[in-house]
Design a binder for these strands. Structure first.
Lengths: 245, 245
DNA sequence: CGGCTCCTTGAGCCCAGTCAAAGTCCGTGG
DNA sequence: CCACGGACTTTGACTGGGCTCAAGGAGCCG
């Protein structure tokens, strides 16, 4: 299966044929391709569509007048930006691509149609939203309490599991198509310090990061260093009681 | 009106008599009183009820084995903890009181009943959840990009508007019933540094904080210092098109 | 009045930031 | 196939915001 969206959602529950068809149809609507570092949604925009990321990486961010920028979240393939965003009048943050991406645009009506048609799908979109907010909380914890190495290690562990959930990892490695400056804006560090912290992880033999591919050499050790507990991702088939068949 | 919950929700839309009755009834269920610094929900618990905070302050938090603690969110009177939390199997964080509180416990069935009975109420609970996650994003920005003074100033501005939305401010002041250590765990600072930063705000004439009451002497100046933009709180009657009558 | 808890202050240190320059990689065009 | 340019990474030297440790003060409650 190459539909990362459905693949992600099936980490919660297994769909029926009808569910699958409805989700496939929804993710084939309004396909757009964008290049790297393009804005998808601007702060202040009126929400018009739900954007579904099919390929590539994007991010939420907020930027101050003085240039400081915080990346608030990463969108990975299969991630849906805010299924209920229509309730709000204006976007309070921006969304931009990090790499070239493929997006689907899903209308409010279609979201309503597929959730009305299947309570299982409705519940699963709820789950996706709770999963997203749980990540946001964990980022709050990282920025508030973790040191530079811990933050970096934690992010690498999180990305490993999120990408694995959509089939985008090899055994111990994955594509990490962002710059050190992006990581700096994500982790609340300077890019110089991200660079030095990466070297610390490299020389201690924890990771390799060459030509966009990150390899984790000792995941248990990195997990311990990061104080990483995967429970908050809720990727462990928690909707088993809703499974089809 | 002394129902802070309804008062908060009416910052989004105006309810009908039937909506009001349903919400009043829901917030009168399973009333509990707890003292200061008691846990309401533990990390790892199975979610059983939605907790509605009627009086007092509480917080979400996460704590590491080594003692580091991050307060992830404040719950103020009228705040509802996670209306859809039942979808998840286990809590990935804890909730505790900061002051003595009064809580209502709302069951999953009742939440479903009132949202099914009134699409307006359903939409408003959606709004409340989006409001909460927007605050979480802004805290991410604060911890990632704002300096100590800016973080403190930003928090004071945010609390001012959130408390005003439920009628808990005087013109320029409000009750701030937390310790400097709590603020430290919220802002990712040490309590010593919070103390020094508070003095900076005091000696520059921005605030007074005596006997639990915080007074902001020049809100525009504090807003500017904090780079505070209230848009993310979405407290500006954004559901006007849904108003009853 | 004794004993909490919380706040305040001082001294010294360190993690991470800033500034600046050089090195590397990669795509593009001649 | 090489030269160029731009984006990104790496390194060095220095600075500073915020941390730690520690002790003393203030307020409050029984």
């Amino acid at each position: 299966m190459d539909n990362r969206f459905i693949r992600k959602l099936e980490n919660f529950t297994r769909f029926s044929e009808a569910d699958l068809k409805a989700l496939e149809d929804a993710s084939a609507q309004g396909i757009r391709r964008l290049g790297a570092r393009e804005d998808i949604v601007l702060e202040g925009d009126e929400p018009r569509y739900v954007n579904l990321l099919l390929e590539g990486w994007a991010c939420r961010y907020k930027q101050f007048q003085d240039g400081r920028r915080q990346i608030i979240a990463f969108f990975l393939p299969g991630d849906l930006c805010d299924p209920h965003i229509f309730t709000l009048r204006r976007m309070d943050h921006a969304v931009a691509t990090l790499t070239p991406v493929t997006l689907a645009r899903i209308s409010q009506e279609r979201i309503e149609a597929i959730t009305t048609a299947s309570p299982r799908v409705a519940e699963t979109l709820w789950w996706a939203m709770l999963h997203t907010t749980a990540i946001q909380r964990e980022w709050t914890v990282s920025l508030g309490q973790r040191s530079a190495v811990e933050r970096l290690a934690h992010l690498f562990c999180e990305l490993h599991l999120r990408l694995r959930a959509v089939g985008l990892t090899e055994a111990t490695s994955y594509e990490l198509p962002v710059t050190q400056a992006d990581l700096a804006d994500t982790l609340g560090l300077s890019s110089v310090h991200v660079n030095r912290t990466l070297q610390e992880l490299r020389t201690s033999g924890q990771i390799t990061w060459k030509g966009r591919r990150l390899t984790i050499h000792d995941l248990p050790a990195l997990t311990a260093l990061a104080l990483f507990d995967p429970a908050y991702l809720h990727l462990d088939h928690e909707g088993a009681h809703l499974d089809a068949h």
